[in-house]
Design a protein around this nucleic acid. Structure first.
Lengths: 336, 336
DNA sequence: TACGCGTGTCGAACCGGTTCGATAAGCGGC
DNA sequence: GCCGCTTATCGAACCGGTTCGACACGCGTA
């Protein structure tokens, strides 16, 4: 690889002039500019990003930290982020916390050491959990999906309450009154919001929500399965189920299949988040889907805005909540 | 952040001694070692990875390049890689080529500029496609999943031919003779291998393979769907289908559902690669699954072996082919 | 003619480490 | 008492850029 010194020698100028030409061409005479450009071209020069990082105190890397990369939601999200980052000449370092706060802390420390120019973080843990390690970050960051109390920052997420409201309203309109809610891990922002939307809509519609059938399925297929088993074999079983996530919904569907309870004839099922391979899961599940591309694009833009802002600029914090979209499937119908 | 100079000052030694202590403690007197350790601890010192990268010409980053991150196979794979990398104190830069060779070239160039210590690459394009940009890589790399002619390197992959052989044999043993093969993108290593396994097993079993029902479904759900539509509505329709990938299988299943052709009563279906949410796809599809964790672990180990080897060491190239595992589902049965 | 100013270029310091060659101290052998 | 060897430490060069202050030059003005 050629260095800036090679270019300087060939162009017959000093290395500072070369650097100047590359970074602030308007400060360099036209003729010099041409010579440097030719020399750089001739030796195939491109600046070493590591040396730049060292001097500038910032690299052209972006960190993305999520709780579980295998979740298809994050896969899609990552793909979009990577695309945007690439367009802005940045690479993406991705890391999985497995929902462990101590992993999150360690990863953020690593990213800080690498002087990443920005971080996209889906924080783990309860809303009121520890957040010092996030608040003290020295580079721009954007939280997404999951909100955290006590952290002043840009945030991008879907309207979780609205998502369950839409599903709840849809079921009520179909005539359901005994609706069970298979919630996400309690304490988590998204889980609480989704539950809140459900309860609020039930209340607003004058339909009583029985606390005995508003359960915690921990964003987990197995729990979704087990809770559904319990609900559907217990007394006074619900005529409809709302699952707080795609994996919970699939667990629920599996339980119904095994119990021989037909969906939607005997029970309606709706869930939040797109179900991968939705087309082949029979019946097709009614879902409220998050607009992944929009979320990712917005998060990228918010982050890039801060990264590219001249130092010292004050940028107001943005909270962007995007509306989900309801996608009706064959899994919801009028109660028997 | 504190620098090595702070530590040196506090410990009352030179910066070279501090560096020596941290990198080759055995060359430093015990007493000095203690003083340095204490000083480092006191100021909370940890070496700047960027400065180290600049001087050493190598960073503690690993690149992982795949054709499509949203594919659940790669999601799982990435998660494992990231875990292993983290354990070895490395971060993972992930990049998606969208199966475009020009993206692959650009990404590899970026990774090289970042002086990543190693690269895990699922190369894109046909086996005989361009590979100069890979061969010229200046750092250790391991190819996985997809092989490339003309590149001497470590390789880790599943036994693709064996995977389709196992499925083919299973179907033949059940009594099928007219078996269709929904192949992957022709020209791609995995696709050719999978087809080869199918044809070889058919031939070895004395069952004629009708070329008219050995088709190309391009590793794509829509093509799987369309080809199945064509096959199942045409004359002399097959009694069994083998899909070269999970998405093809799902497309095929959807087509059968829509045509009202019952599986497995009227047609058997088997596929390669795990089907996500397998538990809720009815019927459960018989698959030959790749051992993802083993593949990822092996790839990590091969790469780390090269990364940590003292420079100049010659390491024989390894090609590791792991056997898939067959998982029987309800989608395959005796022909009517 | 002298002065001040704007423009273009340059040398040198610096970012934070690693590493090589030099040097000094300690020690045993003759 | 001196030589030579080992061991511990250090100074300085270097990795490849960026940036600040200095400086030379040409020009218009007083």
């Amino acid at each position: 690889m050629s260095t800036i010194r090679d270019v300087a020698r060939l162009a017959g100028v000093s290395i500072s002039t070369v650097s100047l030409t590359l970074n602030t061409p308007e400060r360099v005479a036209t003729e010099t500019r041409r010579k440097v450009a030719e020399a750089a071209e001739a030796v195939g020069y491109s600046a070493d990003p590591i040396a730049q990082s060292l001097k500038r105190g910032r690299s052209r890397l972006i960190g993305m930290v999520v709780s579980d990369i295998t979740n298809p939601f994050f896969g899609r999200f990552l793909q979009e982020i990577e695309r945007h980052a690439m367009a802005a000449d940045h690479l993406v370092i991705v890391s999985d916390t497995s929902s462990q706060i101590r992993n999150e802390i360690a990863i953020l420390r690593h990213l800080a050491a690498q002087r990443v120019s920005g971080i996209l973080l889906q924080p783990t843990g309860p809303m009121t959990g520890p957040s010092d390690h996030i608040r003290q970050l020295s580079m721009p960051f954007v939280l997404f999906d999951h909100r955290l109390d006590g952290v002043e920052s840009d945030f991008v997420g879907a309207d979780n309450a609205l998502a369950s409201s839409m599903l709840t309203e849809h079921l009520i309109r179909l005539g359901h009154r005994r609706i069970a809610f298979l919630g996400g891990t309690s304490g988590l922002y998204t889980a609480e919001e989704r539950k809140r939307g459900f309860l609020a809509t039930m209340a607003a519609s004058g339909v009583p929500a029985d606390p005995a059938i508003v359960v915690d399925a921990r964003y987990d297929g197995r729990h979704g399965y087990e809770q559904t088993m319990r609900l559907m074999t217990g007394p006074d079983r619900p005529t409809a189920l709302i699952a707080a996530s795609n994996v919970i919904a699939l667990g629920a569907l599996q339980a119904c299949n095994e119990l021989g309870i037909a969906c939607p004839a005997e029970v309606s099922l709706a869930g939040i988040d797109d179900v991968p391979w939705a087309a082949v899961v029979q019946p097709r599940i009614t879902t409220a889907v998050q607009p992944i591309e929009d979320l990712a694009r917005t998060a990228s833009e918010l982050l890039m805005r801060r990264i590219t802002a001249p130092p010292g600029t004050v940028i107001d914090r943005s909270e962007i909540i995007l509306a989900p979209e309801i996608r009706l499937g064959g899994s919801t119908a009028r109660p028997a």
